[in-house]
Amino acid sequence: MMARTITTAAVLMVSMLSVSMIVNANADICNVPVDDLMKCLPAVRHPPEPPTPGCCAVIGAIKPEDYPCFCQYKDNPILKVFGVDIDLVFKVPVKCGLKGVPSHC
């Protein structure tokens, strides 16, 4: 029972540290500032909202070669905490009218 409590506490600490790193305004995910990506949060959660002009501006600034980087987050539990669906991430560029962007991992 004690080992289970210690393991649970360790997992919780690592999760909290990961969340704080992601939420940190100076952090980047795939060369995009987290603050900018947060503008797209409503468009990548269920039920998805249409991307805002601010979100589309962020997505339009992402280099096509950086999109595969987002696939490494597909099973990231931190994104699940925020309710992010990685499949919706790849639908936002199309909804923003961007072409030449990967549509899935």
Rank of each mutant, 00 (worst) to 15 (best):
M1P: 14
M2G: 14
M2R: 14
A3G: 12
A3L: 12
A3F: 08
R4H: 11
R4V: 12
R4F: 08
T5Q: 15
T5S: 14
I6R: 07
T7E: 12
T8A: 13
T8V: 15
T8K: 15
A10E: 11
L12C: 15
L12K: 15
L12E: 13
V14C: 10
S15M: 12
M16V: 13
S18W: 13
S20E: 06
S20F: 10
M21Y: 05
I22R: 11
I22H: 13
V23L: 09
N24K: 08
A27W: 06
D28S: 07
C30E: 13
N31K: 09
N31Y: 08
N31I: 09
N31A: 11
V32F: 02
V32E: 08
V32A: 05
V32N: 06
V32S: 05
P33K: 09
P33R: 08
P33A: 00
V34R: 12
D35I: 09
D36C: 02
D36A: 04
L37V: 02
L37D: 07
L37T: 04
M38V: 09
M38N: 15
M38H: 14
K39Q: 13
L41T: 03
L41I: 04
P42N: 03
P42D: 00
A43T: 01
A43W: 02
V44H: 05
H46G: 03
P47I: 08
P47Q: 04
P47M: 05
E49L: 15
P50R: 03
P53W: 10
P53G: 04
G54Q: 06
G54F: 08
C55A: 01
C55N: 04
A57I: 01
A57L: 02
A57V: 01
V58I: 05
V58R: 03
G60I: 03
I62N: 02
D66V: 10
Y67A: 03
F70G: 07
C71V: 05
C71T: 02
Q72V: 14
Q72H: 09
Q72K: 11
Y73D: 11
Y73K: 06
K74M: 11
K74C: 15
D75K: 10
N76S: 12
N76R: 07
N76Q: 08
N76K: 07
N76P: 13
I78H: 09
I78F: 06
K80T: 11
K80R: 14
F82Y: 02
F82N: 01
F82A: 00
F82W: 02
G83Y: 05
G83M: 01
G83D: 01
V84H: 03
V84D: 03
V84F: 02
D85C: 10
D85M: 11
I86R: 00
I86F: 00
I86T: 03
D87F: 08
V89A: 00
K91N: 10
V92Y: 07
V92A: 07
P93E: 07
V94C: 12
G97D: 05
G97N: 03
G97Y: 06
L98D: 00
K99W: 07
K99E: 07
G100Y: 03
G100A: 01
V101G: 03
P102L: 05
S103A: 12
S103G: 15
S103P: 12
H104F: 12
H104P: 09
H104L: 13
C105W: 01
